[in-house]
């Protein structure tokens, strides 16, 4: 690979833009393919263009055969995202663990005493109201949303935005009783059973977690299951 290609790839990654690196495995020749390159008349091999379009959609790298030999398509997608509502104790280990698992983590809490850089070093913090923050962040199919405040004033508005989004995971902390009350409120707000079934509540896999870090493990395990089990 040419250094110039690597530098350009790193710039795309920094800008969080989607790009495929196409490398001929016989010759080592490479080029970067952006989604925009597929529409215009370009010099792309048709087999490469077709596979690249699919690779963009599926987020899966693969090798395709072309007239010039096998070409490896390496997908560089922007990182997965996790939006955590509630800068509470559990959010501290969860933000760190999720970052280790490759997520770009944002913690949302309008309570400035909770959302401090001291409690969340190296984490993006937003002190907007959760519905405003969620609307701005616009969860997509590569985003997980976890609410941890168990305060309806904060969790519910976030859940309402999350349930209208294609987020691949929605989870909400709270006991069975808290969760049942939450489902009643969301039903009154007009959400149907299909929407409510998307909420993982009580949040996390049932592994008997007790400490904040253990609960974070159970949540991240459930998020991982939602992400990978479908595939």
């Amino acid at each position: 690979m040419k250094s110039a290609t690597l530098e350009e790839l790193l710039r795309h990654r920094e800008a969080k833009s989607l790009v495929v690196l196409a490398t001929n495995l016989n010759t080592g020749e490479e080029r970067l393919v952006r989604p925009g390159d597929l529409d215009s008349g370009n010099s792309l091999d048709p087999a490469v263009a077709e596979a690249a379009a699919d690779a963009f959609r599926s987020d899966r790298s693969r090798t395709v055969e072309t007239g010039d030999g096998p070409v490896f398509l390496h997908v560089f997608n922007p990182p997965l995202r996790m939006i955590v509502v509630g800068a509470v104790h559990i959010a501290q280990p969860l933000a760190r663990m999720a970052a280790l698992a490759g997520y770009d983590v944002t913690v949302v809490d309008p309570r400035a005493a909770f959302a401090t850089d001291e409690r969340f070093p190296d984490v993006t913090l937003l002190t907007d109201w959760p519905d405003d923050a969620l609307t701005t962040l616009a969860p997509d199919a590569r985003t997980a949303v976890v609410t941890l405040t168990h305060d309806p004033k904060l969790d519910d508005p976030a859940l309402e935005v999350a349930l209208r989004s294609p987020a691949f995971y929605v989870g909400s902390l709270g006991s069975k009783r808290t969760h049942a009350a939450r489902l009643r409120r969301l039903t009154e707000a007009g959400f149907g059973d299909d929407d409510l079934d998307r909420i993982n509540g009580p949040v996390g896999l049932a592994i008997g977690a007790r400490s904040p870090a253990e609960i974070a493990v159970s949540i991240l395990a459930q998020v991982t299951q939602a992400l990978r089990r479908e595939a």
Partner: peptide, 22 residues
């Protein structure tokens, strides 16, 4: 504050390769 993009649990393989090369 933003986190560095991570491909693989915090180990930035391509970034490290570019830094060595640079």
């Amino acid at each position: 504050m933003t986190q560095p993009p991570r491909q693989d649990w915090g180990e930035d393989v391509l970034g490290r390769a570019a830094a060595w090369k640079a």
